[in-house]
């Protein structure tokens, strides 16, 4: 059911996936906060083979002026993939997919950011995918959230993100590119770990109600792992080489 035909063994009899991971094991994740000098806040994430930079400006004056809201600040987000981020050169103009991801990331961050404190301003988020390897929207969202915190923009909670999916009739955590292409379902989830609220959920594929529930639970567990790494990134930047009392 579903998925593309492939010679790839997605899941062997010992429960090991095509890249050697267990079913509930995420890829290797590394986040660094404050990597760019000219942006107000920034973050760099390596999520498996994904390499993504996020930069945040603001709150600042809105241009064009008619977009400004006198009651609250606004959020703008641009997700962009570099021409060299995929195997065949990607044309640099924003594609349908990039416009969609920009929108969902913006909407996933909006509940967390306290824009009402900054009327008539805008917070701009720029996300640049340097290398893509499946699940880049989750990685981008996690990086954007760290960049926002680095910019000192008040937030109700961090937003963590991780995907889960169905591969070879099994629910697995953090679907990679091969599994995404050949698997049966992919579900990216954005999650606020302290408020225990989901801010992003998408589903590509077919799941039974039971599988759906399991998939959400798996993804949320993954988000909690990502949160610890986000926390470490900020702690490393702001509280290292000092005593922790």
């Amino acid at each position: 059911m579903g998925g593309r035909d492939t010679d790839l063994i997605l899941l062997d009899e010992n429960g090991i996936r095509c890249d050697g991971r267990k079913i509930d094991e995420p890829r290797k994740i590394m986040i660094k906060a404050g990597v760019l000098k000219n942006a107000n806040g920034s973050a760099y994430i390596e999520f498996g083979d994904n390499k993504i930079l996020a930069g945040v400006f603001g709150p600042r004056d809105v241009h064009p002026k008619h977009l400004a809201n006198t009651d609250t600040g606004i959020l703008r987000c641009r997700y962009h993939m570099s021409p060299f981020s995929v195997e065949e050169r990607k044309r640099p103009a924003p594609s349908r997919r990039e416009i969609e991801i920009s929108k969902v990331i913006k909407e996933a961050l909006k509940p967390a950011v306290m824009l009402e404190q900054f009327p008539r301003t805008v917070v701009d988020i720029f996300i640049e995918v340097l290398q893509a390897d499946g699940g880049s929207r989750c990685a981008a969202l996690a990086a954007a959230s760290v960049a926002l915190a680095d910019a000192g923009i008040p937030m109700r909670d961090m937003v963590s993100a991780c995907a889960a999916g169905k591969v070879a009739d099994t629910i697995v955590l953090d679907v990679n590119n091969e599994e995404d292409q050949a698997g049966q379902a992919d579900m990216p989830v954005g999650y606020m770990p302290n408020m225990e609220k989901i801010t992003l959920i998408q589903l590509d594929g077919v799941l039974t109600p039971e599988e759906y529930k399991k998939c959400v639970e798996t993804a949320v567990a993954g988000c909690k792992l990502v949160y610890e790494i986000q926390k470490k990134a900020l702690t490393d930047k702001y509280f290292s080489n000092g005593e922790n009392n």
């Binding site: 915190a149 008040p154 900020l234």
Partner: peptide, 24 residues
């Protein structure tokens, strides 16, 4: 004193929230 990041629960109970905190 404690080091915190956004979303972290500082404490709970009858405290008055001041700058950079919210009550949930």
């Amino acid at each position: 004193r404690k080091y915190v990041i956004p979303g972290e629960v500082i404490t709970s109970g009858p405290y008055r929230p001041e700058q950079n905190v919210i009550l949930d």
